[in-house]
């Protein structure tokens, strides 16, 4: 017996695949899923790398293959640049989850708010952070260092 599967079932499953570096958000929250194709014998997923050199891509590919294996079809995961990933692809839910975990979602520098206290009295410490997609900031109001997702 073959389990019923359609695109929305696959997308719902992908929403349970966490980003390995910021596990509070999924690949769907980050807007990495460009297309999902369900064929009689295969499921093909096209993902967009957030950065060219994101070292988590292999881990993400394996996690997606593992999560979709239960549908009983061959799973093909591809990464491409035909459509560039941009930080405005992060969903509203994704932005809220980032904020709740202490990451300021991507914004214009002028609109940057501390994810802990909401103050706009923040300073950029370093454009570059612990991973390629993150910058380092400091909140002068609550004296808390925090990270933001780079707008790209």
């Amino acid at each position: 017996m073959i389990a019923f599967v359609d695109e929305s079932a696959v997308r719902a499953a992908l929403a349970e695949v966490p980003d390995p570096e910021i596990p509070v958000v999924s690949v769907v929250d980050l807007g990495m899923v460009e297309s999902v194709e369900v064929a009689p014998d295969a499921i093909r997923v096209e993902l967009l790398p957030t950065f060219v050199g994101c070292p988590a891509l292999d881990v993400i590919r394996e996690a997606v293959e593992q999560r979709l294996a239960g549908f009983g079809r061959a799973v093909g995961v591809s990464f491409g640049y035909r459509v560039p990933w941009t930080s405005d692809r992060i969903t509203a839910v994704g932005r809220e989850r980032l904020r709740a975990a202490g990451f300021a979602p991507p914004d214009d520098p002028a609109a940057m708010r501390c994810p802990y206290c909401g103050s706009g009295e923040v300073a950029l410490d370093n454009l570059f952070g612990p991973t390629q997609c993150r910058s380092l900031h400091y909140c002068r109001a609550c004296r808390q260092p925090f990270e933001s997702f780079k707008p790209v």
């Binding site: 950065f51 060219v52 050199g53 994101c54 410490d125 370093n126 570059f128 390629q132």
Partner: peptide, 20 residues
């Protein structure tokens, strides 16, 4: 220290561009 992080991140970007 900030430049340690910045230069490492930039180098990582460049090597990734080279790989692609």
């Amino acid at each position: 220290l900030e430049e340690d992080v910045a230069m490492s991140s930039i180098a990582q970007d460049e090597l990734a561009h080279a790989q692609a």
